[in-house]
Design a protein around this nucleic acid. Structure first.
Lengths: 190, 190
DNA sequence: AATTATGTACCGATCGTTCGGTACATAGTG
DNA sequence: CACTATGTACCGAACGATCGGTACATAATT
């Protein structure tokens, strides 16, 4: 190990910090000076990593979400595993990503706030992707496509609602109940 | 009709405008200049109506929510009406208040953003009040208290999730599905 | 006349962003 | 080897704009 990379912060870490700030404070609540404090970087140094400023920070944070959606899609669509086990794997990912309901959802805050059009558009697409991933948890023998889409919406709404309530109450109970309700909905269709 | 109230804006109308802006843009996304534009009032006029500034605007907006919660509590607890009809009355109120899922929830945006402590505390209390109101839709013969609280959380989470998804997709479909799912949950317990 | 409502002008602080420049590591050139 | 680029990572200082908020004079209503 060289002495170099020991002290400095790596690029992915910076992005993770930024994404986390957006998730906790929203778009308008995230200021460059807060990013500067939390990352330990000077204000101007941030513009070295995110050349187009705040909008690039938001976009790259959505990239992180997109990666998570891909992983969730792969897990939900792994037909070598029974449906209920697939959901349990997805639930585990969700618990980790949302830190048991303590950490907010980037898609939710960007949806509820008034954000620039480019962000709003990508947020919508990522929600569609999430919905598509959730339909993979439906057994095609048990339910038709419309039913699968209803289930996907049910799951995403449940999780989002659980996150909102958990944040409001500073307790992960609601989030955990939401996951449990989705689990029973999964077992109803498999 | 006097010439007075024709031209100028009435106090309750101003508050309604302000609350609507908070619901659409969030706390940090709501600026005094935007409030000035949307209400048509000059800056000093705004500070005449809300002496303590932005924090008072937010608090009084929460007052509006509190009034709505009271009304919902009364409707949900009107035992002279069968349970399913009570829910339908509540659903109607919700559709109106959230404008079929197009308009966001003040409690949700205040929960997801990083707002001053006084706002966060009141937001939490109002969520508790909402939950309490929803338990009134449970028939005490059919379910015990723990079950009623689970139902209340289910309902609130469903609605909040529906609002998030509806806003993201610019379509009231998710919100409507959420209301329908709560309706069937109500009929399961009555 | 007193009270309420509004407009003009202004304030310090902070916003997102850019500027000019430093430190250092690597790559090419003589 | 010495020497000059070139690139990466960072910083403090400052920019114009906007933030939330105030002071004060004026107009309207009671």
């Amino acid at each position: 190990m060289s002495a170099l990379d020991n002290d400095q912060k790596r690029q992915p870490d910076i992005l993770q910090d930024v994404a986390r700030i957006f998730r906790a404070n929203g778009f308008h609540g995230t200021t460059i000076s807060v990013v500067s404090e939390r990352t330990g970087l000077g204000k101007s140094s941030i513009y070295h990593h995110f050349g187009r400023g705040k909008s690039e920070m938001a976009q790259r944070s959505l990239d992180v979400v997109a990666t998570f959606m891909e992983a969730m899609e792969a897990t939900a669509g792994d037909t070598s595993v029974p449906t209920s086990a697939r959901w349990e794997a997805v639930a585990k990912m969700l618990r980790e990503y949302y830190e048991n309901g303590q950490l907010g959802c980037l898609l939710a805050v960007f949806s509820l706030e008034d954000v620039p059009d480019e962000l709003r558009a990508r947020t919508k697409l990522l929600f569609d992707r999430w919905l598509a991933a959730m339909t993979l948890l439906c057994n095609p023998d048990q339910c038709d496509e419309a039913d699968a889409q209803r289930f996907a919406r049910h799951a995403v709404m449940m999780i989002q609602g659980g996150l909102v309530l958990s944040r409001a109450q500073s307790s992960g109970d609601a989030f955990e109940q939401a996951l449990a309700e989705v689990a029973s909905a999964v077992s109803d269709r498999s």
